[in-house]
Design a protein around this nucleic acid. Structure first.
Length: 273
DNA sequence: AGCCAGGAAGAAT
DNA sequence: ATTCTTCATGGC
């Protein structure tokens, strides 16, 4: 925890929005900002009003992780529709889509299924405390070997519920697999590999594609997104709905999904728009 | 107290 | 190929 750098707060970058839009779970509020843990790295991020001060162990890691090289302003300009998407961008335009580790996102989003965010965070934290390397004042996300060194009983004991069997089995099936190498494949081919993992369906696969592989021609459909489009696509199954929304929003579907998700989940007056 | 949570597997139809 | 049921647990 020795490297320090600052980043401007702009209309297209807000740390609070970026962390709270549901894409990442290992963060918490601290005095004056947030503590974020990603993989084996940690950053304390302080809100200085007009900028953010990052105190971390690896500046290059977090500069890449926060996706500062993407031009969000022109991205947003292309996505504005004068309607719902424009409103969502107006509300959550400070969101950046993080560049997370694929294996960490696989496990995190298996845990997330049919679950609450506070509980998801608790389960992930207990897994890291038990199996991750002690980095001093935090725990690294465990290696797949560590995750595979325990069985279903462990994951049940730390509160994963019926997802315990999924976690144990996926851990063992990923030992020795170079998941990052899947990046060379097409979005559809990566999705097929993800769907072959026990406990990974279309929704979790699309979250991993978006947050772990940074593929934006995906549209994860969950209960909140269903609410957004309930009139437009009523009685359409979630995975078919995802396909329709990808056709509708094209290459930027993933960004649109995040803006709409954040807007619907956090803005109470959304329905009156 | 009940209902719901960023779903998916397996069975039934 | 599509729909229904079940799954474990905590937060609200």
């Amino acid at each position: 925890m020795k490297v320090i750098f600052t980043v401007d707060k702009t209309p297209t970058f807000d740390v609070g929005q970026t962390l709270d839009c549901g894409q990442v779970f290992r963060f918490k509020a601290i005095e004056g900002g947030y503590r974020l843990i990603a993989g084996r790295h940690c950053a304390d991020i302080f809100d200085l009003g007009d900028k953010y001060r990052f105190e971390c162990d690896d500046a290059e890691f977090f500069r890449s992780y926060f996706d500062f090289d993407t031009d969000y302003a022109s991205l947003q300009a292309e996505c504005r529709d004068g309607g719902m998407v424009s409103d969502a961008i107006e509300y959550g335009g400070g969101i950046h889509i993080l560049r997370q580790d694929p294996v960490e996102t696989i496990f995190s989003f298996i845990i997330s299924q049919n679950n609450h965010i506070p509980r998801i965070k608790g389960i992930i934290e207990r897994v890291c405390e038990a199996l991750g390397e002690n980095m001093g004042d935090y725990y690294a996300f465990p290696t797949v070997e560590a995750l595979a060194s325990v069985g279903e009983e462990f994951y049940a004991k730390i509160g994963a519920g019926y997802r315990a069997a999924y976690l144990a089995r996926v851990a063992k099936s990923l030992v020795g697999v170079d998941v990052k190498a899947w990046n060379a494949l097409s979005t559809d081919d990566i999705r097929a590999k993800l769907l072959s993992l026990y406990g990974v369906g279309r929704k979790v696969a699309d979250c991993v594609l978006l947050f772990g592989f940074n593929r934006f021609d995906v549209f994860p459909v969950d209960t909140w997104i269903k609410k957004v489009f309930e009139e437009e696509y009523k009685n359409v199954p979630a995975d078919k709905m995802a396909t329709l929304l990808i056709q509708k929003y094209g290459y930027y579907a993933g960004f649109v999904q995040q803006w709409l998700f954040f807007y619907k989940r956090t803005k109470k007056s959304f329905d009156k728009v």
